[in-house]
Amino acid sequence: MIRVNNLTKDYGSRRAIENLTFEASQGEVVGFLGPNGAGKTTTMRILTGYMPPTYGSATIAGFDVVDESLEVRKRVGYLPETVPLYPDMTVFEYLKFMADLRHIPDGDEIVDAALEMVHLEKRSEGYISNLSKGMRQRVGLAQALLHKPEVLILDEPTIGLDPAQVVELRNVIRDIGKERTVLLSTHILSEAQQLCDRVLIINKGRIVAEDTPENLQARLVGAERATLRVRGDSEELEAKIAGIKGIQAVKSKPDGSLEFQFAPGFDVRPDVAKFVVKSGYDLLELSPVGLSLEEIFLELTRDEKGR
């Protein structure tokens, strides 16, 4: 659905993105993850036909984003980072205006349906200038959904929303993502983890990793870790556990628990549990520690700096 080939964009002498290559197929939610200024917005602006790339090419639904820009724009719903709204219009007027620009027949009904989707039907007669940030974000999303686009491109869709609204918006995005292609950018890692089938990590204009959130996690973990918590003093235990076969390292955490590391595939947790109980401690917790996307992200972008 989306096919990007060696995309490069220069702003004057500054290179915003460099040789980006990736694909996204139908029914897939792809997350674009990266720090601010990594080139996420630039990539999205090229894909939506807002501006052309310096080198490289991209197609959406088989249409070139530069040469067949109008065809691409008909098929893409886009929510830019700063939600583009006319404050002097009512919500309904604004959406009707966008529906007219997209030549949607039965515009009124489509607008009502879109408002329902983002739970704004009660505010349709209100002026956009009176809406909260979260509501504006939802009006922007309704605008992107009006024409039932094959591809939905959302730039930081949950920014500025309160937690309840974030959950709601994520549900909407997940529903849409079942049938259509969604490309969303975010710098909130847990969001990418929850929403996306695949994550592209981008830093300084280059893709540094591309995989499912789970695989990314597995790929980067050189060793498995687990947390152990017992009742009472665990200081003595630290040295004893280090002696158990298969354990690579143990360190005590400030909250009194111990974290130990072992080679993947050699799960020593049953041995540790037996040992703890045999030694007369009350075992409170023994749980695996996953490397969060946060850590992966830092890991990857640190590598990038070293290069």
């Binding site: 807002y50 886009y78 939600v83 583009p84 006319y86 620009l101 997209r102 605008q143």
Partner: peptide, 13 residues
């Protein structure tokens, strides 16, 4: 207002 991005990414010449 940033609405240029809206108009230029809609199918409008």
């Amino acid at each position: 207002m940033g609405t240029m991005e809206l108009l230029l990414t809609a199918p409008v010449r």
